[in-house]
Nucleic acid binder design. Structure first.
Lengths: 339, 339
DNA sequence: GATGTTGCTTTGAACGATCCAGCCATGATG
DNA sequence: CATCATGGCTGGATCGTTCAAAGCAACATC
């Protein structure tokens, strides 16, 4: 507070004067130590340590024209349960970015167009070097517009319908629900239902298609219910599907799955050692409830995204601009409180 | 992508040359329009619009020594349910900061000391102007160290035991649980239990004390159970408290509360039109389940914090460095699916 | 002895903005 | 007429860094 003007902050110049070398030599000690003679290097390093010098990110940014910041829009939390996955994503994104010297700069905007506008402004003003998008959908205008404005962009989620454009990483949700479905088949179930989301919803349709592939030949097409997301909707949908003769359920989200669990319990359906309901996203709540769930490799996605945008920023070509990662099925036995 | 070098980015100098005035005049049009003669101003504004000029945040920051960024550590998500409140906080923090021209810069670190170190580095390197802390606790070293390093800091959560130090905003959790307890009393309950968190936990003890004040004179001291947070623990604790004769419950979190709800249901306890369990934080899940809950004024907290740190950054004195806001009790009727 | 070559270091020139002191008309005041 | 204040604008200096080019020994090569 009162220390502000006690000692002026050390800079390259002040350090250089102090040690008796030029500023560039000090700069080299920091950025290219190998070009400086070891003796000189040590002297400079000692002075740096003694003074507590930190390079000014801003001075550096002005010269290099790189702020080492990535812009990212923070979406409002819709649902505490499913929000957990965006939380994980944000955390790992920040972590991976930090690992490569970048930091994540948050944005809150009203809609997609404001997002594009703000990101463009920030990019033009050199506040951010690139953008990380989420919540992509068919017809999403953001990737194109950002590219047109020259903003390097990567997206978590494919640009549905235009998968060959842009730079993105996505999870093969269909493969996840298919694996879940086949697992239930392997347990002997032949009437497997799917609780999904109302259309249009690209992610939801993808997951639904995985289930369809999984139940191929079983004639389960009547066991599909699509609603909005939520515990209540999950419970209602499950009741209906059970009434139609379903014995096992695959769900598009953990919220729907947890809702379905309560329906099973209320109706005291005789099940094996665990209730045959499989959720999606493997959220902490699913873990707590002991529900099986399809887990997205969120951390791997972040790592891939950061890797992609940094190579892009270095002007290097990407070997692969479109990456699809496989989810894994996490099986649990409902050791939960509410068994 | 290929537009990069087509036209060099406009700058104050290029605009000034173009319009035929000095750079300072263009700068004034942007920052102090009132000192420029209207005629000149219009010409400059026209050129700005035509060129799509954006002031370079970096050039500006170098000169003003303000990056307009606030550092904030992102904690890992412990629990999808309670994580929702941190999510809300982050969102509103970013929004409020943006309203004053600041942006939030995320950090992920392993522990408190790394947090202090990183924030100090970023501050020294002029990457951030100040820091916003959360998850404060008794003996928390962070505020003191950051102040010692000259990093302007505000915290969401008081520095327990040293409430007269630092700059912080907190919610009066005890007032919330007390109100919840009194509400249950007004419904006729005389055996009101509390499901809390294991000690030591300053926030939890605060909430527990509110309950204690609320049940004063009822002799409910035996109806206290403190555990780790979670649905399972909530259910177990509730069973135990019901066995001890409790008829209504106040909980330190929505997780515990939701767990408690399931215990009520399993035991088919006769209740009125709604189950007398009150949670804390009013998370989306509580809303979905129809559970009453104590709601923190998260947005007001963010606003206050941003207001405090910005006035501090402007070198202006704070009239009040310690702010406590009251939570509100949100009553619901369990119109939920699982009634 | 002239000419490279190598290893280490220095110097000038940006990068894009704001601060600050000063300049120049114009008009008011004594 | 001299003096001073004022509105509007300008230009130098500065913030801290890196890039590009050049300087300068010492040593090897022809």
């Amino acid at each position: 507070m009162t220390f502000d003007q006690r000692t002026p902050k050390p800079t390259l110049v002040s350090l250089a004067r102090q040690v008796g070398v030029s500023r560039q030599t000090v700069s080299n000690v920091i950025n290219n130590p190998e070009v400086v003679k070891p003796g000189t290097r040590e002297k400079v390093l000692a002075a740096i340590r003694a003074s507590g010098y930190r390079p000014s990110a801003i001075g550096r940014a002005l010269r290099t024209r790189r702020s080492m910041n990535l812009g990212h829009r923070l979406f409002p939390v819709a649902d505490g349960i499913n929000g957990a996955i965006m939380d994980r994503f944000l955390h790992s994104l920040s972590e991976e970015a930090q690992g490569r010297g970048f930091r994540v700069n948050l944005l809150t905007v009203e809609d997609d167009l404001h997002e594009v506008e703000t990101l463009t402004d920030l990019h033009q003003g050199l506040s951010i070097d690139g953008a990380v998008l989420t919540h992509t959908y068919a017809g999403d205008p953001r990737p194109d517009r950002l590219e047109a404005s020259g903003v390097p962009t990567v997206a978590w989620g494919r640009p549905w319908g235009k998968e060959d454009t842009g730079t993105w990483v996505d999870v093969d949700g269909g493969a996840g629900t298919e694996e879940a479905t086949l697992h239930l088949r392997s347990l002997g179930h032949t009437r497997i239902g799917f609780l999904g989301w109302q259309r249009p919803n690209n992610v939801g349709e993808d997951r639904c298609n995985g289930w369809l592939r999984g139940v191929a030949g079983l004639g389960c097409e009547d066991l599909l219910i699509e609603s909005t997301d939520g515990l209540y909707e999950g419970a209602q949908g499950a009741k209906e599907l059970l009434a139609r003769g379903a014995t096992a359920l695959v769900c598009a989200s953990d919220s729907l799955g947890l809702g379905a669990l309560t329906a099973y319990r209320q109706q005291a359906i005789p099940t094996g050692p665990s209730i045959p309901v499989i959720g999606f996203d493997d959220t902490p709540v699913a873990r707590a409830a002991g529900m099986s769930s399809v887990a997205q490799p969120v951390e791997a996605c972040s790592r891939q995204l950061v890797s992609m945008i940094t190579t892009q920023l270095q002007g290097m070509p990407l070997e692969n601009s479109h990456v699809i990662l496989k989810p894994t099925l996490v099986l649990r036995n409902l050791q939960s409180f509410a068994r």
